[in-house]
Design a protein around this nucleic acid. Structure first.
Lengths: 357, 357
DNA sequence: CTTGCATAATAAACCGATTTATCGTCGGAT
DNA sequence: ATCCGACGATAAATCGGTTTATTATGCAAG
């Protein structure tokens, strides 16, 4: 057996020869053009399966402008949120007959721009971009330069160039203010963010602040935001608490990201404070462990599936020319999951559950 | 301004014209062939930057056999383990001058095979495959059929066709047996797995079992393995504990995956059992929350970075022809992080840390 | 001055598909 | 019988690079 022949894939010409027709005819059959005699179509299909023919997407992509690929750029693939987002996006894309290529900008705006250019290189039909910072970053700029059709997701506000999709960070954070201030009457609250670059974080900050001042103009809100290294941030939290005059500590903390929640939780534990007795805690972005840990953590759950669906639908509507109007901003509502760390009453705690429930 | 011209990208011929040389010369300059006069190379580079020229990878890939892309197929992009793995792989690949395309088989073997074929379509130089089940799955089969160079990662044992890289699941699980049986003297242990398909899980099972029987032939080991839905698995755990005669409960649990750990933890809590007093817990696969939760969870940390480095190095060695010998099995050592849920003594618990530590 | 050889540059073929322009055939209308 | 239009099929051009075969140039040796 010749190793060369063994792994040389069949071309469209091989199929044409086997079926006794021309390559053009094979191409027509394969892409569903109707002007082909039924008998010939039959023979082509037979030849295709006999030769195990697969169309070469590289060659196909060169001439054809029919691109059935969509690109997705996210800032990070380690976080469950983006992991779930790309998984859902890919599922939806395949269901609509598209392939998807995923890439991570690794929280780096220069890389974000480079990936946008790379998506253009691969001639994607459209691109989903989750920017590192916001809709005004270099990625969106590049997409515009190239005239690509795209949808901006998650770390964005309204934009006049692209459709945008995100969780309703503003309203969800306001509802956290409702819980902590309106219902529980906290007078001194710490807002903690492990990064301040993301537009999403800034929207959460604003949403909480505005509602808080409406509910109680006298509420004291401290903000601890930083882009520093992990250990520096840990130290900042301890130093913040040490600096508070005893008895004037914040009685509640709203952590603005999952990463932030973990950090705060870890430092609270280290300082020996009790949750929620000494300090209540609400986190933005839910995770599996938050309902299992003790005490369980009250958190804002983001509508990942809804975001993915909306984003892909919006993109395909643009790609397929069904929507050509002005850019639209989609805001998907979040859910506040009230658990023990803030708001859940004693009687709601889980108990020993016997055989009969 | 003509919109057509605005977004039409410059071709190699445009560059050739602008530099006053032929397209062949431009191609040589761009791919670093030395047989070009320095002056011409200079003019080409100038023309490239003036025209913002980017090589078209689609056209380039058609003729050239020089593929600078490597493919990665993982079973899942939502788990932090694979998220981190692909992130590191991509980083390393780029550092070596390769691009990477990532895809998720979503724990589906048919999809795994399809993705392998798709990687072949895109003419990747090599492929990293994390199979859904094991090295004997349809993905590896396809890779072999196509004559692709590939490395199999994580859910694998030694293979006679491809290099394999994984955590040393067997030895790590044996060291868990050392801790629970050798040091702590547990006589009745439950092994829990939320799936039994994965080769990694089966290796963990075997590693624990063999060492356990060596240490104490009389030890009782129960196994609770299932591929059922979440709720079914929860019920199975409760039913298992209800079925045990009182006082003959297992005194320790070894959960074989992160998912499993979370599930077990959740049910232990619901049953009102205390950790580690009523039952000790060790989990395979560490997560950030495990050291923050209370009690903190003893876990086996996998060497993700080492696995990524080894896998990519092995693949590139094959791709670049530096290694042509028999397939090699690489086993990377894990680390057992002993925390409160098993093994950590009272005095090691974290305490209130003042200003001076 | 011619020959030989190494070095550079280029025209042209090529990769594998898609698309266009051309051509042949057949049935029906004139 | 001739012409026309509809329909199918195909040869050839095309996409944007890479690679090969050929040609042109310069310089040293004979």
């Amino acid at each position: 057996m010749q190793p060369d022949d063994k792994h040389r894939r069949a071309t469209i010409h091989d199929v044409a020869r086997a079926a006794g027709v021309s390559a053009a005819t094979v191409s027509k059959v394969l892409r569903g053009v109707k002007t082909v005699r039924a008998e010939n179509a039959e023979r082509v299909h037979k030849a295709v399966s006999e030769l195990d023919y697969r169309m070469d997407p590289v060659a196909s992509g060169l001439r054809g402008e029919q691109r059935r690929i969509i690109g997705a750029v996210v800032p990070d693939l380690e976080s469950p949120f983006f992991g779930k987002l790309v998984t859902e996006l890919e599922s939806l894309a395949e269901a609509a007959g598209y392939h998807m290529i995923v890439a991570s900008s690794r929280e780096n705006e220069a890389r974000e721009a480079d990936l946008a250019a790379r998506m253009n290189d691969w001639r994607v039909a459209g691109c989903i971009l989750v920017p590192v910072r916001s809709e005004r970053g270099p990625g969106a700029e590049k997409l515009l330069d190239f005239g690509m059709t795209a949808v901006l997701v998650d770390r964005v506000s309204a934009d006049e160039r692209f459709d945008t999709v995100s969780a309703d960070n503003h309203e969800a954070s306001a509802s956290v203010a409702d819980l902590l201030i309106g219902q529980q009457g906290h007078k001194h609250i710490l807002l903690h963010g492990a990064t301040r670059i993301s537009k999403a974080i800034r929207n959460r900050l604003a949403g909480f602040g505005e509602r808080a001042r409406t509910l109680d103009p006298g509420v004291v809100i401290d903000e601890l935001l930083s882009d520093e290294q992990l250990e520096t941030q840990r130290a900042a939290i301890r130093s913040y608490f040490d600096g508070q005059v005893d008895g004037h500590r914040p009685t509640a903390i709203f952590s603005l990201s999952q990463h932030s929640t973990l950090l705060v939780l870890s430092e609270i534990r280290r300082m020996g404070l009790k949750i929620p007795e000494d300090v209540a805690l609400v986190g933005f972005d839910d995770a599996d462990w938050m309902q299992t840990t003790w005490p369980s953590i009250t958190a804002v759950a983001q509508p990942v599936s809804a975001i993915a669906e909306r984003a892909l639908a919006a993109l395909l509507a643009r790609v397929e020319g069904e929507h050509t109007g002005f850019p639209v901003q989609y805001l998907e509502p979040c859910t506040l999951l009230v658990r023990q760390s803030a708001g859940q009453t004693e009687t709601e705690r889980p108990r020993r559950s016997g055989r009969s429930g």
